[in-house]
């Protein structure tokens, strides 16, 4: 369980990222965070694995306050919390398989990993995960030869190889075209269901949020302005979150199947 208690975040440049956030996210939930750009979605998600550190309050992950974590505990936490990025963040010159194995780094000794001596079962596991997002046959291809959608699926496989309890996805489909976006979101939803992973996704397209979320959290100017299960969400809810009527741009569309 992830719990935010009076969490605020003020950046060194004075920008207020988060304002007094109180949230409880249960195990296995698929939560989508919506809001305009600059509303604090990224700050919220990145606080959970301390890629940014809140300036006030407590964040409890399995009843431990992660804000007080030192370097060592932090690395342990990050092995349990996987992250998917908008720009995939793969090493372009490395093979897909090696990129996926990068997810095992937290579980592998420094020397072993530097020499590339991964246990055979880890390699097998990495290949299985590539299989789950159906790009098994690209294992030895260099990452930069893949399309954007394929690269994002590689990064899903990388996160799975990490064997996390939680997946954080920061705008995972913002760089993809509509049909590919839906494929990637479907993959993400499916694997998180199969492994019963808590998943927290930032999205700014409201139709996507409605299609995939179990629960929606709306942010505006760093504050939670909506929090509720998907069946309570209507177009009106989004207008409240965005603080303006819904426009064509807020919809992704394009789900053919």
């Amino acid at each position: 369980m992830i719990e935010f208690k009076n969490v605020s975040l003020k950046y060194p440049n004075g920008h207020q990222g988060l304002k007094n956030i109180n949230l409880k996210i249960n195990d296995g939930e698929f939560v989508v965070i919506v809001g305009m750009s600059g509303a604090g979605k990224s700050s919220l998600i990145r606080s959970i694995n301390r890629m940014v550190t809140p300036t006030e309050g407590k964040i409890l992950v399995d009843d431990q306050d992660i804000i007080t974590f030192n370097e060592k505990k932090l690395r342990k936490l990050r092995t349990e919390v996987g992250m998917i990025f908008q720009s995939y963040n793969l090493v372009k010159r490395m093979s897909v398989l090696r990129n996926v194995l990068a997810g095992r780094l937290g579980h592998t000794g420094t020397i072993r990993s530097m020499l590339g001596l991964f246990p055979q079962k880890d390699i097998q596991f990495a290949l299985d995960n590539l299989d789950r997002v159906s790009i098994h046959e690209k294992a030895y291809t260099r990452a930069d030869q893949l399309s954007g959608g394929q690269q994002q699926r590689v990064s899903i496989a990388r996160v799975l190889t990490q064997q996390p309890k939680v997946i954080l996805a920061d705008e995972p489909v913002a760089s993809l075209d509509p049909p590919t976006s839906h494929k990637v979101m479907k993959d993400l939803k499916r694997v998180s269901r199969e492994d019963n992973l808590t998943t927290i996704v930032n999205l700014h397209f409201i139709d996507m949020a409605q299609e995939y979320a179990d629960r929606i959290i709306g942010l505006r100017d760093g504050e939670v302005v909506f929090d509720g299960p998907i069946d309570q969400v209507t177009e009106k809810t989004f207008e409240e979150i965005y603080g303006r009527p819904i426009k064509e741009d807020d919809l992704l569309g394009g789900d053919d199947d």
Partner: peptide
Amino acid sequence: EKPIVSLRQA
């Protein structure tokens, strides 16, 4: 039994 896989292609 699964075959041994290498990090590199043969």
